[in-house]
Nucleic acid binder design. Structure first.
Lengths: 351, 351
DNA sequence: TTCAGCAATGTCGACGTCGTCAATTGAAAT
DNA sequence: ATTTCAATTGACGACGTCGACATTGCTGAA
């Protein structure tokens, strides 16, 4: 592989001068610059970042650690956000996943340290409480889509599940719905409780009696291998004589099953039943017909901004205790309508 | 950061001896080993891979380049396969994506070269023809889920779309279906034509008249921003007086829309209409009720085996021209049934 | 006893880059 | 003409690691 010395020889200057040109340092003659650049182009020289890093103690590499989230479709957007930030800021992204296995996690941290990466974005499933096994010598770390267990301190960036769910519920109430069904996420996930709490709070604030809320558990069991009751519960709920006029689902995949249940009962969305989801997972939310009203989780931004927070931290400018919460916007599509009203409304989302 | 020399000082040996212990070289006293390991543990020493790599000219890093595939849910499994291979073989994965933008692609290759990575896995959307901009000095490269344009030579690993589609069609014929609908993928995707060709070939081999096949275009337009006709076409096809008894969809997301169309017409799956997809994209194929009969694309294995091929190449053992084709198995679930028969059958897939 | 032979350990330099500091040049100031 | 100073360039070493080779010390054979 061609090195700075090869370039120096060809250009007839010292290696240090080549270094100056490569790094855009001042006090180099235009003439010299040209000679050097010519040689660089000729030889196809590209600086060796490893060599650079052993001198500078900075690698410009950031690592992403994912737990089982990597098996979900969500993770992709977060990672893409990080990548795009990295690309725009001259960093490179090292990727590793642990499948939730502590042994593998330890290895990943070791590997990252061995690479002397500048920092780590720890991306966890949904919104779970998490403690990175950073070990003795620690790398600057930001938790993405999760936050640390009590007693541990890490900066984090998380979606505002509560706010999103609250706004979604208000949306339904504004549409005149008074009898509302709710299918819960796996309670193991932090987001699950926040979403439900917000739903209940908003319903109460909207003057809806608890007796008019029908709440069912959609899935339970270990994350990633849960038992799924959604279809059954949706069927059941929608078969009630006084069935809800609107059905809130813990996420979009649950909403899919709710659609299927509704349709197979001969109900039409949104004419007979309003169905809404959560996440705005496009494959589902745009794949459903009519398209799904849901809440957009800012996955891409979690990644991008998380990377940005990490960068601040690496440069000593960030706060060790920052907890940044990103807004979740309601994306109103055609699956929600005024109670007893089939007319599609204007979208209020950002798309 | 603690270096090999710090360890040497604490252990009271030379740095070279520490190096020997770290790399498991022979001819070191058990006593010495212990002293050194103690010092290592004390100081939390972790070898600096950058320094190692400038001596050895090997980084044990492999890069993944994705084009817009990273916006699809599929890419995740491929990347996971690569990661798992890397984790199991002491490699690290550098990740970059181009969004299909040639400028970004050029930058990505530059960055990868600057890191002196050992090789590149070029992962392309679906199954598209692709030319990596490797540039003058080339890094060993394997194309994953895609293959090179005519005139270019790169090893590649691809799914057997044709075989999978053929088997799926045979499956339907074996179930007694004689009048079959087909909704095509975006023709821009290589997989699209292979799947359609296989369908036609298998239908002919099964003695089905062309007049009994109803073929519709499901989407067209630039990859990633296509116009979607699936729902409309499915509605239309299923409203025909002599409607097909089985409907083959270009992929699982299309099958989702076919379900919705069927259900909204009051048809039941699979009693009234058999629907099958392609990809086995779990969010959809398992999220649909009844669960979807489809063809499993071996995304994870594409990643794992692709990484393996690349490794061979890096070590000079691989072939520059290998084109490995991975089988796609039919996963029979409950959405396909004998014509006019509602009884669910035994799954023949591997799950 | 002497020495070959081998195991155990150390010294030194090189990898590619860049920071430090010195050397050289030319022009402006005296 | 001499001095001063800034601009330009180069020589050298250090970063962390390990390969090549040297040194030390011990064993066993002659």
């Amino acid at each position: 592989m061609v090195s700075i010395k090869d370039v120096a020889r060809v250009a007839g200057v010292s290696d240090k001068t080549v270094s100056r040109v490569v790094n855009g340092e001042p006090n180099v003659t235009a003439d010299t610059i040209e000679k050097v650049q010519l040689a660089i182009a000729d030889l196809g020289y590209i600086p060796n970042l490893a060599a650079r890093s052993i001198r500078s103690n900075r690698t410009n590499i950031i690592g992403i650690i994912t737990d089982f989230i990597s098996t979900t479709p969500y993770s992709g957007d977060i990672v893409r956000g990080v990548q795009d930030w990295a690309g725009a800021n001259g960093r490179t992204v090292l990727l590793a996943n642990t499948d939730g296995d502590p042994t593998r996690e330890t290895n990943v941290w070791r590997t990252f340290k061995a690479h002397r990466i500048d920092g780590v974005l720890y991306v966890a499933m949904y919104h779970r409480v998490v403690v990175p096994a950073a070990g003795e010598v620690s790398i600057p770390t930001v938790l993405v889509n999760s936050h640390p267990e009590d007693g541990y301190v890490y900066p984090s960036i998380e979606p505002d599940d509560f706010g999103g769910s609250y706004a979604l519920t208000e949306h339904l109430i504004a549409l005149g719905h008074r009898r509302i069904g709710y299918i819960r996420l796996n309670p193991l996930l932090l987001g699950a409780n926040q979403r439900l709490d917000a739903f209940l709070t908003a319903a109460q604030a909207g003057g809806i009696a608890e007796s008019d809320l029908v709440i069912r558990l959609g899935m339970e069991g270990p994350v990633g291998r849960e038992t799924n009751y959604v279809y059954r519960e949706a069927l059941d709920m929608l078969s009630m004589p006084d069935r809800p006029t609107a059905l809130v689902c813990g996420n979009d995949e649950m909403a899919l099953q709710a659609y299927l249940a509704a349709l197979s009962l001969g109900l039409r969305v949104p004419d007979d039943i309003t169905i809404v989801g959560f996440d705005d997972f496009r494959t589902v939310s745009l794949g459903l017909k009519p398209e799904l009203t849901t809440v957009a989780l800012p996955y891409y931004d979690l990644g991008w901004q998380g990377a940005n927070m990490l960068d601040q931290l690496v440069h000593g400018k960030g706060s060790e205790t920052e907890r940044r919460i990103l807004k979740c916007l309601v994306v109103a599509r055609q699956s929600s309508a005024r109670r007893g009203d089939a007319t599609p409304r204007q979208a209020i989302g950002s798309f």
